[in-house]
Design a protein around this nucleic acid. Structure first.
Length: 726
RNA sequence: GCCGCUGUGGCGGAAUUGGCAGACGCAAGAGACUUAAAAUCUCUCGAUGGGCAACUGUCGUGCCGGUUCGAUUCCGGCCAGCGGCACCA
């Protein structure tokens, strides 16, 4: 080859040209259709990894493609830059989190992302740790506080002893901390919450409108929200006027109740056992269960245990007296913290009844009429005909479900209810590097929100992070002590900061007008750009970030700041980057450093490989040889194009008259194929395969020399299409 | 246990609407060039049988069955792997 494929020279030339000309800067332009393409912004940990490269390569191809198709494309990048690693670095190396974070951002932006040749409008860059951003977190918090959507309550919270902070329910993964995998414990604390449950119904029903989202993400969200419809029924405690409410979805089995179970934390426990001879043993049992951490307690192998309280309750349907037990499997957080137990028709109750010798009564008979309580080996949970159920005998249990609910409401012993698995979002974090919660505590006025005019509440810089004791904000007198804006008296600042998921819950709106200083964002700009047409990121955020962002969008809509119900029209969840069968991670030692690939092969090879090796939503197995292959291909492209570029420079492009020509046909078939592959499901791997076929055809075609003028089109096609990839 | 996804050569993966299974790439093998190597180029490459050969028979998309002229694709039943949820009342 006369000329080598010198990726360094080429990439440097184009990248500096893009930067100098601000090629990818966009402004609102109503004459063009808009397209908002967004990749989930990274945490500035210091270095990008292959997952980022893949994510941004996908987004970049989509953006470039849409631009060529005449769209006005918003393609921004920013930094999710509050968070724990910065604090840990500060403790370990004595460097301030702010300095550490900002240096990381500069390095990752200038030395890594820009080298990848990504088509971002860098003028719209956003960093959540800057006060020009987080002041709007505070502003939104206060708006939510005013509407009762942000509130404080004393509650049992998930506590990660290693991160030394509270976790939201969404951040506990099978009893372990989502970030550090420590066992989560319980703690009773005063905490700030966002009332996401107020939007449970809408978050659920809108799942069906999100047709551009992968089914499995929607399923996960629906599961998480967890709606169940049933009735709340009130039992009376025998020998007292106290009421014990239960929730059930199986009111058709109410006549089969043979005992009740309550959670060890149930507030009525004390009065139930008062004066009973069982009291002491019951108390000991409850204390033991409550001491267990969340992971142990929710482990499915955990033995179901219980103890009789000595008290009885009366079933309002048949006035029957049933014993009240405490069960370690009853959760105070769900329903009413008390359940009715129907061993004949619920497997867990059946096991429990067998273990403790409690009675079993059949109230739904099967078709063969063969169910006999004493002979049952397991609970009968299928449909059947009602028996032993008074006036409801003879109906099918599905009919009876409605009839009994009606009866319960008519006789005022309970009502139809909906229960949600979704809990309110606990956002208080006992950490330094986050958005200060803009609240004051005044001895005379109580809880006082910081007035808008005093925002932002700045994070103090003159603090020392030792990793010991309490958050530095608690120890900073100048931060903590202030004056009450209402009465002028002494007041204390809230020293908790916000969960960093608050930051990422509305950043996509900020990109629409990142310099706006009168509001979180400009309503008109957001009206033009939103919603995000294509959102791309990892599946790990299926519940956490994506649910919170949907919630925030609805709140912001209801504040009148934005007209739209959902933030992301289409969602692409990319697979992980895998090497030797495992996710790339430092602990496994199978990390491939993007910098190394960039230096050895260049950005285009790195991007080409990550798009070619697998369709975007699937996991991508890293292969060093595959990278070689991608590099070889680019080399072949370079060679054939540069071989003929001089010859064809002044030749007119072939037109329709050449349609019988083999290469002409191939060129157009390839253009069609690539377009279709991108339009349909973003199958870049097959689009690239088609380009490879075309290049092979070109080599074949030119192997015996070329005379005519067909090459110009080929060259043009190659140029256009590789630009899409490169 | 429940819900979802996936299953195709040695490997990553194609086959878009039921119509040539295995595109493209990787690995492997052979050859050309070279003193040699690298690079590059050309050819072969699912399994198995027949033929010196051009060629050709049979089988083959996790397993069993069904619909169809025809099934990787549609239907029913199983198996395996991955992911999510789960004492949720």
């Amino acid at each position: 080859m006369d000329e080598r494929y010198d990726f360094k020279k080429i990439e440097e030339r184009w990248q500096s040209s893009w930067q100098a000309n601000k090629t990818f800067k966009v402004v609102e332009d109503v004459s063009k259709p808009k397209y908002y393409c967004l990749e989930m912004f990274p945490y500035p940990s210091g270095r990008i990894h292959m997952g980022h490269v893949r994510n941004y390569a996908i987004g970049d191809v989509i953006s470039r493609y849409k631009r060529m198709r005449g769209f006005n494309v918003l393609h921004p990048m920013g930094w999710d830059s509050f968070g724990l690693p910065a604090e840990n670095a500060a403790i370990k190396h004595g460097i301030h989190p702010s300095k550490w974070t900002l240096e990381n951002i500069t390095f990752m932006r200038d030395k890594q992302l820009k080298r990848l040749g990504l088509s971002y409008d860098w003028d719209r860059e956003v960093a959540t740790c800057l006060e020009e951003y987080y002041r709007w977190n505070q502003w939104l918090f206060i708006r939510m506080y005013e509407r009762g959507l942000a509130y404080k309550k004393l509650s049992y919270v998930n506590w990660c002893p290693s991160c030394n902070t509270v976790l939201a329910n969404e951040q506990v993964e099978s009893g372990l901390c989502w970030r550090c995998s420590s066992v989560v414990t319980h703690k009773e604390l005063e905490q700030w919450f966002f009332k996401i449950t107020a939007y449970a119904e809408e978050l659920l029903t809108y799942c069906d409108k999100l047709t551009g989202w992968p089914e499995r993400v929607l399923t996960m969200q629906k599961n998480w929200i967890g709606k169940s419809t049933g009735v709340e029924v009130v039992f009376t405690v025998e020998g007292s006027h106290e009421k014990l409410a239960i929730f059930t979805t199986r009111q058709d089995t109410l006549f089969g109740v043979t005992f009740m179970s309550i959670a060890p934390e149930h507030p009525m426990l004390e009065s139930l056992i008062r004066g009973k001879k069982e009291a002491e043993r019951v108390l000991a049992f409850c204390q033991r269960v409550m001491r267990e951490d969340k992971a142990t307690r929710t482990d499915d192998k955990q033995e179901k245990e219980g103890i009789f309280t000595g008290a009885y309750a009366v079933n309002p349907l048949n006035n029957e007296k049933v014993p009240v037990w405490v069960g370690n499997f009853v959760l105070m957080e769900y329903g009413t913290g008390a359940i009715m137990s129907v061993p004949a028709h619920d497997q867990r109750d059946f096991d429990f009844a067998k273990k403790y010798g409690l009675p079993i009564r059949v109230v739904i008979q099967n078709r063969e009429k063969s169910l006999v309580a004493d002979a049952m080996k397991q609970a009968y949970i299928e449909d059947g005909i009602m028996v032993n159920s008074g006036q409801f005998d003879g109906f099918s249990n599905t009919e009876a479900t409605d009839k009994i609910a009606d009866f319960i409401e008519k006789s005022a012993i309970g009502k139809r209810t909906v229960n949600w698995r979704l809990r309110d979002w606990g956002i208080s974090r006992q950490r330094y590097w986050g958005t200060p919660i803009p609240i004051l505590y005044c001895d005379t006025c109580g809880i006082v929100p910081v007035p808008d005019g005093q925002l932002p509440v700045r994070l103090p810089v003159d603090v020392e992070l030792t990793g010991r004791g309490q958050s530095p904000l608690v120890e900073s007198k100048s931060f903590r002590e202030t004056a009450c804006p209402k009465c002028g008296g002494a007041a204390r600042r809230e020293t908790d900061t916000m969960d960093t998921f608050v930051d990422s819950s509305w950043y996509f709106l900020r990109y629409c007008s990142p310099k706006e200083d009168k509001a979180p964002f400009d309503k008109k700009a957001a009206g033009y750009w939103m919603s995000v047409d294509q959102y791309i990121g990892g599946i790990e955020h299926a519940v956490l970030h994506l649910l919170y962002a949907r919630f925030f969008t609805k709140v912001i809509r209801d504040l009148g700041l934005f007209d739209g119900d959902e933030p992301f029209v289409n969602l692409l969840t990319q697979g992980m980057v895998i090497k030797d069968g495992a996710k790339m991670s430092k602990s496994k030692g199978n990390v491939v450093d993007p910098d190394f690939i960039l230096s050895k092969y260049g950005a285009d090879t790195a991007r080409l490989f990550s798009l070619f090796a697998a369709p975007p939503e699937r996991d991508l197995e890293w292969s060093d040889q595959g990278v070689d292959g991608a590099y070889r291909f680019l080399h072949r492209v370079w060679a054939i194009v540069s071989k003929y570029s001089a010859d064809v420079k002044n030749v007119k492009t072939a037109g329709h008259e050449a349609r019988g020509d083999r290469l002409y046909r191939k060129t157009h078939l390839t253009i069609k194929k690539v377009t279709e592959d991108i339009e349909r499901e973003f199958h870049f791997n097959t689009a690239i395969a088609a380009l490879m076929e075309m290049v092979n055809e070109m080599y074949d075609y030119t192997s015996h020399g070329v005379a005519p003028d067909k090459l110009p089109i080929v060259r043009a096609a190659i140029d256009a299409l590789t630009l899409l990839i490169a």
